[in-house]
Design a protein around this nucleic acid. Structure first.
Lengths: 367, 367
DNA sequence: GTTTAGCACTTGAACTCATAGAGTGCTAAA
DNA sequence: TTTAGCACTCTATGAGTTCAAGTGCTAAAC
């Protein structure tokens, strides 16, 4: 991932950078005359033309039509963006501002991310994106059945990381508050840290023995646990402020917007990216940028994605970022996304991760 | 809400109906010659022209340009749709099919609605919509603090209707399992069925007295309850399969799609509709149709919304439907939406509403 | 009174043609 | 290596034309 553009002469680099910036600013192809007149160069337009022709053969620039100015290619943007990231020192100036904006809505991670996505959209005028990877088929660490009424219980299932899921159980026969306690005990004894696929019939029978009072209840409870564990949190993607993109000329035609809408609908593609960066060797916790069709993200089409993962105690729990046209104002967006993610990181870390006592250490016992 | 078009002659009605159906089918303005040749009429095109001119002055038809065929106006569609609804007898044939498709994912209402929305989109090839109204500032009926670790608790807050919310609490000092019980008792004693705005300082002090062991914990818990109660479930809107709409010519330009995207983003407008139909005198539990800018739903633009509310025990708990172009295949869509909503109704009603024992009967005691 | 035939009229869509403008590539000179 | 100049390419724009569809209206027919 070293600088690809190292071989470029200083002038070529300057030209490339200027083309990118000008195109980002104006959205129009950049011609040699324009560059010549912009004051950054001492040479003539002809020289610039020659240089640009070379930059084109090198793959950094391209022409929409034979007789129009140049626009950056994907690799052109990549060069520019890598340059930016290299020189970017987390200003951290607006972290405070963003943090305070988020703190208003101190709540669960879920709603923080949604807020963040909205904030990202507002601050950059692109589409904000927030995502939370699925929790695979996470097992539950602890259970508690709460007695609500003679025929209804609330089953609380708590994961290792403290997040919980609830499910209502309703029986045909009357129960006593004691039954809830017995059920809790049985669940905790048999299903604690057992992943969905290990919930088998023998287990169920063992549990029924423990709760002779209400075998039907046990069966319902186990079924609920099984379902809740196997459906997992399927992960979630929030796209906010999609309509802002419609203001940009690159989304004038329906084609281009279609991909994005599909992205919001399918939701799996974006999740794959984060999952990928999670297992990838090189998630250095910095802002990452995907341009166009890099990394087989088809639906991103001609857009770019700038994002940063959010962590709690070293583990990736989500990501926030921005989706916009390829000619995005990367400077602002990078620093904004960085600050935003940092803000969330601080927020959820001093919110302190409520953890269960270490038990099975992730891996489950296979008794 | 009686038939507006009662005054129309049989032939005018037939013409109107045929225009609507043909326009729905082909998406092109309908001319007199086409109608004449379609076999339904014995008169000449000139006669039809005359009739159509009248239908235009009556407001049922309009011409995009002076010299093109006619297309239905909003009232034109309304006439057609009312006719359909009038003659529609819940076929209930495919309820079973839909129900079984849904039963696969037997889960909480939330996920049922999402599934339903996706199903609606697939079956009709329009955009599926599912919404769940917000639960105002609903108070909680019952609380339970679950001891997780010496410094962390899980607070479970349960509403009258059995739905629950959880929140993690984390303290700086070690707690005992007994503290969780005391806290639960105090919360149940003081905050049960108290709406957010009635959670005041005196109450908080009273509770601290009840839990002398950990005043900080009480303060955190009350704060969490207050936040959870006041933020309520803000309601939710799911739009699935928006990209399908892009295939229809009416969404060829960006303008028209913009409104829909905004609809998905803001989410409040659609919720307002259901809220409105909830309090409205005339929610007869049947399929309802909103066309274009009827009922001040600006963002719907040139689209139409077909939906039906979902109930549990008589109370509206959500709605499912379809958004598509004005020239939607209403016949299919109406029956599909009806079946879908019925399927959900059955599903969640034999899933049985787990209720708390009647206590404050909605109104809260103001001690 | 209602229906029909015929005709003039309007209008949008599609096509061609010409022009202007922008920017290039290339060659030859500095 | 840079520059000046020039021919070339391509797009966007606008005017002019034709074509087809469909109407509105009038006068005749049932």
């Amino acid at each position: 991932m070293k600088q690809k553009g190292e071989g470029l002469s200083a002038r070529k680099q300057l030209i490339l950078r200027t083309v990118v910036e000008s195109y980002i600013e104006n959205g129009e192809p950049v011609g040699s005359k324009f560059l010549c007149d912009c004051g950054k160069f001492t040479c003539s337009s002809a020289t610039i033309r020659n240089e640009m022709a070379e930059l084109e053969t090198l793959g950094y620039l391209e022409q929409p039509h034979t007789s129009s100015g140049r626009i950056p290619t994907e690799t052109g943007y990549r060069f520019y963006v890598d340059l930016l990231l290299q020189n970017y020192n987390s200003a951290a100036g607006d972290v405070e501002r963003i943090k305070s904006a988020l703190r208003e809505k101190r709540a669960e991670l879920d709603s923080i991310l949604t807020q963040a996505s909205r904030l990202a959209s507002t601050l950059t005028n692109y589409t904000g994106v927030a995502l939370r990877p699925g929790k695979g088929n996470a097992a539950f660490a602890k259970f508690e059945a709460i007695y609500l009424a003679p025929r209804s219980l609330l089953l609380v299932m708590i994961r290792e990381d403290g997040t919980a899921k609830t499910r209502n159980l309703r029986t045909d026969t009357d129960l006593l508050p004691e039954d809830a306690k017995t059920l809790s005990a049985a669940l905790n004894a048999c299903l604690s840290n057992v992943p969905a696929h290990q919930i088998t019939l023998p287990l169920m029978m063992k549990m029924e023995e423990m709760c002779p009072a209400a075998p039907v209840l046990v069966r319902m409870a186990v079924k609920s646990v099984y379902e809740a564990a196997s459906e997992g949190e399927s992960g979630d993607v929030r796209l906010e402020g999609m309509d802002r993109l419609l203001g940009y000329p690159e989304y004038a035609d329906t084609e281009s917007i279609a991909g994005l809408i599909g992205l919001g609908d399918s939701k799996t593609e974006l999740l794959d990216i984060v999952a990928q960066s999670e297992e990838g060797e090189e998630d250095d916790g910095e802002v990452k940028i995907l341009i166009g069709s890099e990394n087989r993200l088809g639906a991103l089409g001609s857009s770019a994605l700038v994002y940063k993962t959010v962590r709690r105690g070293g583990k990736i729990v989500g990501a926030v970022g921005v989706i916009g046209p390829r000619r995005m104002k990367y400077q602002n967006v990078i620093s904004m996304v960085d600050s935003l993610a940092n803000g969330i990181n601080e927020l959820i870390s001093d919110d302190a991760p409520p953890l269960l006592p270490e038990k099975g250490e992730g891996k489950t016992s296979d008794d």
